Simulated scan of single mutants.
Amino acid sequence: MKTLLNIIWLVLSGFWLFLGYMLAAVIMFILIVTIPWGIAAARIGVYALWPFGKTVVETPGAGVGSMLGNVVWVILAGWWIALGHLLSGISLCITIIGIPFGIANFKMIPVALMPLGKQIVDIR
Score class of each variant (00 low, 15 high):
Ile30Thr: 07
Phe18Ala: 08
Leu116Asp: 08
Phe18Glu: 02
Leu5Arg: 15
Ala62Cys: 07
Gly117Gln: 00
Gln119Pro: 06
Gly20Trp: 01
Val11Leu: 12
Val33Ala: 07
Ser13Thr: 06
Tyr21Ile: 15
Lys2Gly: 15
Leu113Gln: 03
Gly63Cys: 15
Trp9Met: 01
Ala25Gln: 07
Pro36Asn: 06
Gly117Pro: 00
Asn105Met: 15
Pro115Gly: 02
Val64Thr: 14
Asn6Gln: 03
Ser66Val: 11
Met1Pro: 12
Phe15Lys: 08
Trp9Phe: 02
Met114Pro: 10
Leu86Trp: 02
Ile97Val: 11
Ala104Ile: 08
Val33Gly: 04
Gln119Val: 11
Asn105Arg: 05
Ile120Cys: 02
Ala62Asn: 04
Ile32Gln: 05
Leu87Arg: 13
Ile123Lys: 09
Ile35Ser: 06
Arg43Val: 05
Leu5Met: 08
Leu12Gly: 01
Ile32Gly: 10
Ile109Gly: 01
Ile99Val: 12
Thr3Glu: 11
Asn70Ser: 08
Gly98Thr: 03
Gly102Ser: 03
Trp37Cys: 13
Leu23Tyr: 06
Ala25Met: 06
Val57Gly: 07
Pro100Val: 05
Met1Cys: 14
Leu92Ser: 05
Ala104Asn: 11
Pro60Thr: 09
Ala62Asp: 10
Val121Asn: 09
Trp73Tyr: 06
Leu31Thr: 11
Leu76Tyr: 04
Ile103Ala: 13
Lys54Glu: 10
Ile81Leu: 14
Pro51Ser: 01
Ile99Asn: 06
Ile27His: 00
Ala48Gln: 08
Leu17Val: 07
Ile109Tyr: 03
Leu23Lys: 09
Val111Thr: 04
Ile81Tyr: 01
Ile109Trp: 00
Gln119Gly: 12
Val57Glu: 04
Gly65Lys: 04
Ala82Gly: 07
Lys118Asp: 01
Trp79Leu: 15
Thr59Asn: 13
Leu31Gln: 10
Met1Ala: 11
Arg124Lys: 11
Pro51Arg: 04
Ile103Gln: 06
Val11Arg: 02
Gly117Arg: 00
Ile94Lys: 07
Val56His: 00
Ile103Lys: 10
Trp16Met: 13
Val74Asp: 04
